[in-house]
């Protein structure tokens, strides 16, 4: 029988990827040396994965012997990969955490431009979710609290009136002091 009892190990995640709407990599990490060891193989896999998933919003797919769960928003695609025998629900919890964390970091503005603007924070969040294939945390609020949100980096359009006034005051103060 081909059913497998799962090996008791913490190394659950084989890879995490965020792609844009052309299937290009924004961020991706692969945690298993035996799974796509070279950049070229990774690219091919990502292209393939993207082609199979960008039209059907189906949440889960098996590809190249991996179980991939995914989620998309506007022009972004989030993927979490695990072995084909892995508990899909665990992978899903990682994906949800990734998505929710990014969403909170970007203040619900989950799109490519915003990700690129806060790429440093998104990188930190990914690092806080998974380290070398081990899930570190799957709770988005705790992840976000750990990646030290910047407060003064909000684009002008989304600042509250009070915030705008505050920064205007500051600038005025500095110019007067000169």
């Amino acid at each position: 029988m081909d059913g497998h009892l799962l090996e008791p190990t913490l190394y659950t995640v084989k890879g995490i990827a965020i792609l844009d709407n052309d299937g290009n990599r924004i961020l991706a990490k692969y945690y298993d040396k035996n799974v796509f060891p070279t950049a070229k193989e990774q690219r091919t896999f990502e292209k393939n994965l993207f082609n199979k998933t960008h039209r059907a919003n189906a949440e889960i797919i098996m590809l190249d012997g991996l179980t991939c769960v995914y989620r998309s928003n506007v022009d972004l695609f989030f993927y979490v990969m695990g072995s084909s025998h892995e508990n899909e629900l665990i992978l899903m919890s990682v994906l949800n955490c990734l998505y929710d964390s990014v969403s909170q970091i970007l203040r619900k503005n989950v799109e490519k431009r915003a990700v690129l603007e806060s790429l440093d924070i998104v990188m930190l969040a990914m690092d806080e979710i998974c380290d070398g294939g081990i899930i570190i945390d799957a709770d988005s609020s705790s992840v976000v609290s750990r990646v030290a949100l910047r407060t003064d980096d909000i684009p002008l359009g989304e600042q509250t009136v009070a915030q705008v006034l505050q920064s205007a005051k500051e600038q005025l103060k500095w110019s007067l002091l000169k």
Binding site: M62, G65, S84
Partner: peptide
């Protein structure tokens, strides 16, 4: 035959 009949597991990259 059983191995291949198994199902998806045999579709690994190896």
């Amino acid at each position: 035959a059983q191995k291949t009949d198994g199902m998806l597991s045999s579709t690994g990259p190896a």
